[in-house]
């Protein structure tokens, strides 16, 4: 079941200089910490000149669609799904 959330969340971002990869490693949502174990896809979207990085990620049981707004560096949890 996929649910639209659109809530601000706290996130840890990792930059791996050797691989040149950037990804969120964990998020804090509704007082609970979720460790990201898999990065499914990363792409960009544009609203006018503002760019958002969309990270499609998951832990062992939930999928999260996270958006990093490059204008204010805020993280938004856009969607959550349990894959059913």
């Amino acid at each position: 079941m996929l649910e639209k959330i659109n809530e601000k969340v706290s996130a840890n971002l990792v930059y791996d200089a050797q691989k040149g990869a950037v990804y969120p490693s964990q998020i804090l949502w509704q007082g609970k910490t979720f460790a990201i174990t898999k990065i499914g896809y990363h792409h960009l979207t544009r609203e006018g000149r503002n760019t958002k990085h969309i990270f499609s990620v998951s832990d062992s049981s939930l999928f999260f669609k996270l958006a990093l707004d490059t204008e204010n560096l805020n993280w938004t949890l856009e969607e959550v799904s349990d894959g059913t």
Binding site: G40, Y41, S56, S58, L62, G83
Partner: peptide
Amino acid sequence: SIEQQANPLLRGK
């Protein structure tokens, strides 16, 4: 397939 790529929980389903 792109949706399954983005959401690993959907793979194989």
